[in-house]
Amino acid sequence: MKIDFEHCPGAHCENGVTVNMLRFYGIRISEPMVLGIGAGLFFSYMPFIHLHGLPVFSFRPLPGDIFARVMKRLHIKVHSRRFLNKDKSMKALDKLLERGIPVGNVVGVFFLPYFPKEYRFHFNAHNICVVGKENGIYTVSDPVSLVLNGLKYDELKRVRFARGTYPPFGKMYWVEKIPTTTPDLKSGIISGIKLNCKRMLDIPIPYFGIKGIYLLARNVRKWEKRYGVKNAALRLAQVIRMLEEIGTGGAGFRYMYAAFMQEVSDVLQKPEFRNFSTQMTQIGDLWRDFAYEAARKFKNRGENICSYDKLADKLVHIADEEKRFFTSLRQSIE
């Protein structure tokens, strides 16, 4: 059986699944709106956690947070479940599909056959939406893909039970009940923005939000001395990968957030949010410029290559701008 599901590509997997699922239930909101309501703009740098020998950088909140926040703020009841038994998890999935319910799944990308080989890392927080099953082949709506993809029973089982860091344990989620009234976007937007400001400005430990960017800037200056040319280059490449990795909409969600600001100005009818959008676009441009210069640095290409100190200065500038942005955004919303 195949559910009549409109697949629209999105920048990010989790936002994209949320958008497509909501559209299936007749709620049409855009991906930037999902990002904004879900307070999805973030920065974290955790030098003490290592993955594949490199520290963890991230431009988004924990996987699952955006979906959960959006559904909560739109008063939509969702259900999610994890499994220990692989076959049981597949049966539970089939049952939901028979009832015509699209089911979100958290999967690992390493064994995902339609991903290019170079993108397959042991990353276990990718989101897809299963929307049908015919002759043992599951139809899968993956927002980062332009079209629907097919996965065999064994392939889907394997990615749902990927192992390694944060194994998904066949996690699946679906919409149980939607409210009869049209959702109130305004209150969702306001609490989304408030939470986002709080997360960027107020977390008291130095690894998250603006403080995280300052910390990264301080550390970048020491990288070459401390870790050697090669490892420093790898670290820098890792930042760029996370910043521009498939699914950020450019510049680590900054452009998407700028698009959100534009929509907010229309929904709340506050023209000043157009200014915020412009500011955020400029911040996005600064991140892109940083990425461009960083790539020249680790590839050692061309003349006038930035030193690590210069790159750190760029980060400090970005952090200053973001601090200014979120401080004035908070003032305008209160």
């Binding site: 930037p32 893909s145 498939i246 450019g250 452009y255 959008s277």
Partner: peptide
Amino acid sequence: SNLRDIYYALDDSGSY
């Protein structure tokens, strides 16, 4: 592959 990066960019009228 059929994967693409989706960017948010400004069109001629200044909308994303």
